[in-house]
Design a protein around this nucleic acid. Structure first.
Lengths: 257, 257
DNA sequence: ACATGTGAACAGATTCACAGCT
DNA sequence: AGCTGTGAATCTGTTCACATGT
């Protein structure tokens, strides 16, 4: 599909690599913490440690944004917070709607990380008429019938889908038709959207499955591990290999022989 | 680099690329859906479409697992479900604990995608004494004091952290000390863990920030701008959001001394 | 005839290592 | 002296295109 229009997977305009974009929020979080502690400057080494990446990567990432550091000194925390915020588009207000106010939707509505970063929950929407009017996180839930209306009134361009899988595509279609161009999908389904609409997905069980994969590998190894791991190993008995570790993916070059 | 070629990876190939591992759950989900519809075989093309990837990538991914397809025909759905499940370690039972039973913890406890994939919620743990004994998703919440005990008794090696950021590292330390070797972290903090412990993290606001980044680009980009995007763009124009640091640049105003 | 499986080419991301500025 | 910023080298992942096998 999508013949004709320029293939634009995301990393075009100013050419900031996608991998870098994905780390900017991480840096921003670390910087915000430093800012709250009134730390005036940081070196790439310190900031990298706080963000859980290595310093070369961090410097390279920042180099795509511009030259915001001072050689021999480091980075000015406040200044960098501003630059990254601006780059991410967080200096403006983003009204978002959350569709599907079950456990997860409610958790998202209550999540403090949104409000503190320029995201404003414009509305909570649920298909259950019994939910309508009920306050969640201080906001009255509205019925799905109002969806188009809400999006239009609030100029919403970002939607969050927290419905059951079966309803997700339908909700997605309505969001898109109403003008939403970015969707964060928590439902375990592949959403089909027209060109120009961005979808990111978070699948909770996928993350666990990836952990299980690595966990399984660990099991084959020596017995100096903990009792719990040893117990788990009884069932696994499959492979033997090193493992990769590390917060966030460091990459020890391990090659099987 | 080791020896030149290592074809013939027999049954259990080592060194499955991380990117491939991350997609296996996706294939598994698509295959499970096909299986439920009693579809006997799929081509790489069909399965790739269902999983939202391209077929070359899928075939390459599967090639790391072994030769499970039939040329000229495709893949046997049931067989592939089994092979991927086994590779991911989902043919065994994984007891997990969820720590921090707030909105998110409760959502996770209720999440059906776990149970259906070999994950069993062994316990829900919260620091609030008032929560103790309260049933969530049919399981009585237990107090943090019991943590070590629970992990030991159930042979838990995977822990899920859904606590506030401030408590996460402490909980993490206790989990690790008690024998947990894989952690799924929902708290917006970088966790420090010893070697051999795997951490994956899910930060809800990070995903939104990445969407905002791309959304911001769309607004300036014109083309097929939707009504909503246009509206958002109006908002954005308050501060000129388009400047570049590139050639001959503008120079940002704020520079501290 | 047809779809898999895979070398080879390509693209993207990470790390190295050091030049260049403060 | 110290730390940033960045080309170059390396590593990882993706796509191409076709030989291979049923």
């Amino acid at each position: 599909m999508a013949t004709g229009r320029t293939h634009r997977p995301a990393t075009r305009s100013r050419g900031i690599p996608e991998a870098t974009v994905a780390r900017l929020p991480l840096y921003l979080r670390a910087l915000t913490a430093l800012s709250e502690r009134s730390v005036p400057t940081v070196s790439s080494e310190e900031l990298a440690a706080a963000a859980g990446v290595n310093s070369a990567k961090l410097r390279k990432d920042f180099s795509y944004l511009g030259s915001y550091g001072t050689r021999g000194v480091g980075y000015d925390v406040e200044y960098l917070v501003y630059q990254i915020s601006r780059e991410l588009g967080l200096t403006q207000d983003w009204p978002v709607v959350i569709v599907g106010i079950g456990n997860l939707g409610a958790a998202l509505a209550n999540y403090g990380g949104f409000a503190s970063r320029g995201f404003r929950v414009a509305a909570l929407i649920d298909a259950d008429p019994a939910m309508a009017g009920k306050p969640v996180a201080g906001i009255a839930v509205q019925h799905t019938d109002e969806l188009e209306h809400i999006i239009d009134d609030n100029g919403v361009s970002i939607g969050v889908i927290a419905t059951p899988a079966g309803a997700a595509q339908q909700v997605c279609d309505r969001l898109v038709a109403a003008g939403v161009t970015s969707i964060l999908n928590f439902a375990p389904t592949v959403l089909t959207v027209p060109d120009g609409v961005d979808v990111r997905k978070v699948d909770l069980s996928i993350e666990l499955q990836i952990l299980a994969f690595h966990e399984q590998r660990k099991a084959g190894d020596e017995g100096a591990v903990t009792a719990a791991a040893a117990r788990a190993a009884v069932d696994a008995s499959a492979s033997s290999d090193d493992d990769r570790k590390g917060p966030d993916g460091d990459v020890p070059a391990v090659m099987p022989a």
